[in-house]
Design a protein around this nucleic acid. Structure first.
Lengths: 149, 149
DNA sequence: TACAATTCAATTGTAAGCAATTTAATTTGA
DNA sequence: TCAAATTAAATTGCTTACAATTGAATTGTA
């Protein structure tokens, strides 16, 4: 049929969009206990790996812009789990740092991935395949962005 | 290391979340031409496949609730591409129908999937693998929801 | 039949996302 | 050197998402 390409079941983006949202919902009970939303959680993941990071670099890692990050970081600052300071060497930049209480949160977060993983019915091998394919897509996305610049 | 599970590169949800958003961005130029957002677009995909559908059934297909759909459908109604009417047989329900101009939009939308597909660097086989894995996750999500009810 | 439970859409309030613009700071290069 | 271009964060405005609640309609059942 001439409209077959428009069938929902033919779309690749649609299950990706739904899957992402549904899996994020699985995080909710565990993240509620930490008083974090999913986006706040991945910001903390990035920060736990690389402290003393600029908003810009955080955005590059998480594929988020300052329009999303600025208000979110202000909320996390209000929760006292991170600090925001102008970079003295380049005053355009703002440096994000986890506080002691932000670092302490890490010990409670460490259970989260396994608990959520248990909700996703893929074998290790399937998960790995999915992972590789998504990063293949992301690789092309990032390349395209840097080419435009 | 004891915190290895918290590394961003170990997460499965994170690339899914980013991938979904980045691919949706690829739709933007094509959907702008149709004056549709991505969510509005998938609502129309569902409607083109199954007209005369309740908000509830639309939500089941798209994994969206009335909190998202109600305002979105009102916008599409204002654009005159669909109508919203109480179901006379069950006045709790609201029935969604594409208008003539909503159906006409389908002819312009038919190019979209191919154009976006060209932006995603996966072979047909890889895309199929990705598709199967995501529906495997969604299958378990849906089952869990219906078990709760 | 009554009435309790359920269902559906709508509403409310909160938190993202993101395009586009603005402002301040830095870098480039003529 | 100094003006133009670039960069970074913040802001604005708009559109989702979604949990929780509300209110109206329907269903199930004692």
């Amino acid at each position: 049929m001439q409209y077959d390409d428009l069938k929902l079941e033919r779309q690749l983006c649609f299950p990706m969009y739904v899957c992402s949202r549904e899996v994020i919902k699985r995080y909710k009970p565990f993240l509620d206990a930490l008083h974090l939303t999913y986006t706040q959680y991945i910001v903390m993941l990035a920060l736990w790996e690389k402290d003393d990071i600029s908003v810009k670099d955080l955005g590059d890692i998480l594929y988020l812009d300052s329009g999303t990050l600025t208000p979110l970081l202000k909320k996390l600052k209000a929760k006292q789990i991170l600090t925001l300071e102008r970079d003295e060497r380049d005053r355009r930049s703002v440096v994000v740092r986890a506080t002691a209480s932000g670092m302490a949160l890490r010990d409670r977060a460490v259970e989260v991935p396994e608990k959520v993983g248990a909700c996703v019915p893929l074998s290790a091998k399937e998960a790995q395949t999915l992972y590789v394919l998504m990063y293949k897509i992301l690789g092309s996305v990032r390349k395209r962005d840097s080419e435009q610049a």
